[in-house]
Design a protein around this nucleic acid. Structure first.
Lengths: 202, 202
DNA sequence: CTTGAAAGTTCTCTTTTTGTTCGCTATACA
DNA sequence: TGTATAGCGAACAAAAAGAGAACTTTCAAG
């Protein structure tokens, strides 16, 4: 059985590995736990002894068990609606999140603020942006205003040389700019939200 | 496993490739990391040795894995807020959607209806569910009512043998059931929404 | 075909980081 | 009172990281 500190150390290692694609050094573990390097080392040895980590041959202090890998796809089970059972779809399908959202010239931004809340984009949500310098009317874009401010808004160009950037929040007013002061940096591809902290400390 | 510097170098290469549509030279890598050409070269050789990059025949020092085009990570560029430029994060990170949302015993459902709209879960959104038969109070769960109806609601068990399933829509009333009529099928892990139809045909 | 710039490679050297060990102290607990 | 867990900090060796010079390869311009 693990002690609470050992378990905390193991958690930190796994979380770190997921986020950084590498194992933390003893010092990094120590910083997370506010303990020194040598103490972190002691925990690692205990975890190896208890079978939670494996001894490493090279320089690395330890390595993870192999069972730490996971699939890239999720089964798509169907629809869920209030007042009805899950409507199973006839043929089992898999969704590959990477395939849908990833691609060249795409990147992720984290949202600060509530200006798009009525579009279902909340504070602390993540948005996937496709880098491009044009957009359709009504699209949600990353706009660079006056070569300085970046913002996520609905895009409504007018034929008067004016561009409206419209927030999705009835407490906020639409903003109007000379079109040449607006530079489109990208358009919204998707939104995702993490309820269990898998992306917590990024 | 990678060291922190190797991982940083790999990140820079991937980001650079996305932005410039070509691979950075050793010097460009070095400039990003404030290291010299020869040191950058050493990192590249290590990354090739570890299987993260491939050896190249021609002039180029290295090349990316073939599967990079369908890469399943996205560069994380930082935060965006109204009225401020994109706040770049110091150390470039990549987000692996699959790693965050995928895992054993998880599946995807598509939402029909507006009953969770105030929780930011909209009609036609996709939710990732972790299959489990327990949940914390206040969690968003997939509940099976009377072994027939499935629904996504906030979970509020009472200590009177009654369980409240609360929608996130002020137009709808909370529902109360004898706890034994409620079966927890899973808890909400994440939400995602597709703005450009990559999931259209499902 | 020659030539030269740019880019990759190799070498030696120094510095920094990292894992490891050891001795010591402190606390909780049976 | 002895034992197990936690912790610190110093000291050490080895790996990793780095600089910089010299060299080779590649490639495109002339």
């Amino acid at each position: 059985m693990l002690t609470s500190k050992q378990s905390a150390a193991l958690n930190i290692i796994k979380t770190f590995a997921q986020e950084h694609h590498r194992l933390p050094t003893l010092e990094e573990i120590g910083n997370e736990l506010n303990i020194g390097r040598s103490t972190a080392h002691k925990h690692i040895r205990s975890l190896i002894g208890a079978g939670y980590l494996l001894e490493s041959s090279g320089k690395a202090a330890y390595k993870l068990q192999d069972d730490f890998s996971s699939e890239d796809t999720l089964p798509y089970m169907g629809r869920i609606a209030a007042g009805a059972p899950i409507e199973a779809i006839p043929e089992q399908q898999n969704i590959n999140l990477a395939q849908v959202f990833c691609g060249p010239d795409r990147y992720v931004l984290k949202i600060s603020g509530d200006s798009m809340i009525e579009a279902g984009i909340w504070d602390e949500d993540y948005v996937v942006i496709q880098k491009q310098n044009y957009a359709r009317e009504g699209a949600i874009i990353v706009a660079l205003i006056n070569r300085y401010e970046a913002t996520l808004k609905y895009y409504h160009p007018k034929n008067t040389g004016v561009t409206e950037l419209r927030p999705a929040n009835s407490l906020l007013e639409p903003m109007f700019y000379p079109s040449e002061h607006i530079e489109i940096q990208g358009v919204l591809v998707g939104v995702f939200r993490d309820y269990i902290g898998g992306l917590e400390n990024t």
